[in-house]
């Protein structure tokens, strides 16, 4: 019913990690995958880092179902664009007029796709094993402004709530005989559906502002957090290590070692 649906509750060691550790992993995997310009780098990260982590977390099935779902559209468009229109391609494998499939193009598309898969995979791992509330608490603990955190969390939560309301609005109009079959009808029916949603949302905004103020959202106190976040020296060391690997990868890229 909301973004929480990504989150797969579980008691695995991965679930118990501090959200920031998992965020650091996601960022380090992404940075490294993009910094090292050889296709086996993102591939190894997916196979040797993400895959075992996902298995330990016990979310393998959902992961295997969702990752292709998110990655496929990107991979396909990358192959269409880079595979066919790569400007530096010289080894032509096939050509139709201005469109040419080149070996360089395909290789670049493969690298980019693997990088995107590594990035998506890293963040999907984060979302599947981390409660969004815990992640936000952790970020606020590390200096993210509570207002920013509120906006992010509220968007994750309220958008689905409005979707539910939109469904109610649609069904309420159907219950008054509104026929929503057929394209032309659909367009004509837009107004009765959007009206109550917008008016309802505007009315809600002010009421919600009142309610949030009443719950001390504007209070100048130093905030505390309900969710206790486990952390350990080992995790701190791990985060430093991940940061070091990511930095090293970027330096290698800049200096040109990995080329």
């Amino acid at each position: 019913m909301s973004a929480v649906m990504f989150f797969q509750d579980g008691g695995s060691p991965v679930h118990r990690l501090n959200p920031v550790t998992k965020l650091a992993l996601a960022l380090a995997v992404t940075t490294t995958a993009f910094a090292i310009p050889v296709f086996w780098a993102p591939l190894l990260l997916v196979l040797l880092v993400l895959a075992p982590a996902v298995v330990v977390a016990g979310v393998g099935r959902t992961y295997a179902r969702l990752l292709p779902l998110f990655a496929a559209p990107l991979v396909i468009s990358v192959f269409l664009l880079q595979g066919l229109f790569f400007p530096e391609g010289t080894t032509v494998l096939a050509a139709w007029g201005p469109v040419a499939v080149t070996a360089e193009g395909l290789s670049f598309a493969a690298l980019t796709s693997l990088r995107l898969v590594a990035m998506l995979g890293a963040f999907l791992f984060l979302l599947l094993t981390t409660h969004p509330g815990a992640l936000m608490s952790a970020m606020v603990e590390r200096g993210l402004s509570p207002k920013t955190s509120y906006v992010v969390s509220a968007t994750l939560q309220i958008v689905p709530a409005f979707r539910t309301r939109a469904r109610n609005v649609l069904r309420a109009q159907q219950a008054r005989g509104l026929d929503t079959t057929g394209l032309r009808r659909r367009v004509r029916t837009l107004l009765p559906l959007i009206g109550p949603l917008l008016l309802g949302s505007l009315a809600d905004l002010e009421a919600r502002a009142v309610a949030m103020e009443a719950r001390a959202f504007g209070a100048p106190h130093r905030r505390t957090a309900l969710l206790a976040l486990a952390d350990s020296p080992a995790q701190r060391v791990a985060r430093l290590l991940m940061a070091a690997v990511a930095v090293a990868a970027v330096v290698a890229n800049v200096v040109g070692v990995a080329r």
Binding site: R165, N168, Q173, L199
Partner: peptide
Amino acid sequence: AAEVGFVFQNPADQLH
């Protein structure tokens, strides 16, 4: 809808 009229609990769902 021609057989059964239904008044929703929350008027915000139906007024436009």
